[in-house]
Simulated assay, not measured.
Amino acid sequence: MILKQELLLRLLRLNCAFLVAGAVVVALAACTESEKAESRKNVDTAVEKTEDATVAAARKAADLAEKARDNTVNYFKSPDVKEDIHAAKQALKNAGSGLGASANDTAITASVSAAIARDPELGPRQIEVASKSGAVKLSGSAPSAEAKSRAEQIARTVSGVDSVDNRLTVTN
């Protein structure tokens, strides 16, 4: 970055020198010797001031660039930003966990429903299955107490089922 600034400074000086030289040539062509000397002095003074201003501007730009870099680094190292980044990571992690749990509940519900549907006595019945975090809830009707108990046992055999809330009612 400093090399770019130095190159820019040199280009500015060179452009200024050409402009000043052109002005000197024009001014000198129309002047007497004393006027030429005075013009050269004025031009030299103007060139020096221009060079000084250019150097000062380049230094100021370099200082501002360094301050901006330092401020950016300090900003990303600040506790508030680190805390925000940590909170965002946790939110993404929690969102992923929630999606995984939801997909798992859906798989458990489908597996329990399919297993109950394969039972000849329970299959034709309207048995609703719901699951949340491994807890399965059965609702609807069963033709007998044995069938109600069998539905619960079928649900317990499905992978991922931790508990069964059997709310089936016995209807003849």
Rank of each mutant, 00 (worst) to 15 (best):
M1W: 05
I2E: 11
E6H: 08
E6N: 08
L11P: 00
L11E: 15
L11K: 15
R13W: 08
C16H: 13
A17D: 14
F18L: 14
L19G: 15
G22L: 09
G22W: 04
A23L: 14
A23M: 10
V24Q: 07
A27E: 04
A30N: 06
C31E: 09
S34K: 13
E35F: 02
K36M: 12
E38I: 05
S39F: 09
R40I: 10
V43C: 14
D44N: 14
T45F: 06
T45Y: 06
V47L: 15
E48K: 15
D52R: 11
T54Q: 12
A58V: 14
A58I: 11
R59S: 08
E66S: 11
T72M: 10
T72N: 10
Y75V: 03
F76T: 13
K77Q: 14
D80R: 11
V81M: 04
I85Q: 02
I85E: 04
A87K: 15
Q90K: 12
L92F: 09
L92S: 08
K93M: 09
K93Y: 09
N94D: 15
N94L: 13
G98R: 13
G100T: 14
G100S: 15
A101F: 03
S102P: 00
N104E: 14
D105G: 02
V112G: 05
S113K: 15
A114W: 00
I116Q: 05
I116R: 04
R118H: 10
R118C: 04
G123Q: 11
I127E: 01
E128Q: 12
A130Q: 12
S131G: 12
G134P: 06
A135L: 07
V136N: 03
L138I: 10
L138H: 08
S141P: 00
A142D: 10
A142S: 13
P143T: 11
E146L: 11
E146Y: 03
K148Y: 01
K148G: 02
R150G: 01
R150S: 05
A151N: 07
A151L: 10
E152R: 01
I154V: 14
A155Q: 02
R156V: 02
T157S: 15
V158G: 01
S159D: 12
S163W: 02
D165I: 08
D165C: 01
N166P: 03
R167T: 04
T169F: 00
V170W: 04
V170E: 05
T171V: 14
N172T: 09
